[in-house]
Design a protein around this nucleic acid. Sequence first.
DNA 1: CTTGACCTGTGTGTTACACACAGCTTTATG
DNA 2: CATAAAGCTGTGTGTAACACACAGGTCAAG
Lengths: 140, 140
Amino acid sequence: MTVSELAKRAGVTADTIRHYVRTGLLTPQRDPNNGYKRFSERDLQHLLFIVEAKSLGFSLQDIELIFEQAAQGQSPCPQVREIMSHRMTEVAKKIEAMQTTYNRMESAMERWKTQPNCIPTGDHICHLIEGFSEGGCCND
Amino acid sequence: MTVSELAKRAGVTADTIRHYVRTGLLTPQRDPNNGYKRFSERDLQHLLFIVEAKSLGFSLQDIELIFEQAAQGQSPCPQVREIMSHRMTEVAKKIEAMQTTYNRMESAMERWKTQPNCIPTGDHICHLIEGFSEGGCCND
DNA sequence: CTTGACCTGTGTGTTACACACAGCTTTATG
DNA sequence: CATAAAGCTGTGTGTAACACACAGGTCAAG
């Protein structure tokens, strides 16, 4: 398989695959004629694994670790469980942070409805943002 | 002010400030004696603006745009409103995607409780992940 | 054989900083 | 005053996971 054939079969872009090859997650052979990457069925299997693991929140580094474990004939399952709980708390934190930001954005938008545009005076840049926490407005 | 003094007054790290300087968001003078960055009160004001805008979901590029507008004496407010609504849909999408991932993670963890560890056979890498969507288990 | 369409590998850009590191400053001490 | 330790500085580079640009190679049609 070439890069684009593999990409089509796995539902990812060719660039994604190239990225995985560059970082060593996939190790295709090379066509001696033109230097093109040549992928096997096993490579496809690995790629599908990557896609699924990513959808479960694993990072590419996590996945590389799992591959290494498995390549040594060792069960990656204990690591998988451990990494997963790490990632879960991480993701939870990120969601919370983004939600906090989103809430701030909503309340800003709400307040801005009643605030006019203002011209920078040199003392301030944009009253919509500046002193938003304190509730100031350019016409106060 | 030096970098670290400014950092302390704004509650950010010195590296953050150095980053803003490198990208042109802050433009301190230089101490002719030692080449150190020298910040003014106006720089502090700009930095505080950056911090606040970031907490409202603006990117550094957005903020640079706002600075440019204001520097030309034009009101950045219309742009600010427009960018904000862009960013809000972006953030909402991200939150949704992460929430989806999180839900998948939760259900994976739940299912894994009853699944034993398995040893890679060459046909598979980790049954916990592989075929998770189909509900397979290494002992099926 | 040539034209055009498509595909390839490699190099670089993206976001918002954190870290490493050699060298300069400042402070404490003798 | 000399010196050594502690701290601070600027610059260079690394991070995650790709996307994009681009010069050149490949393939089918004519």
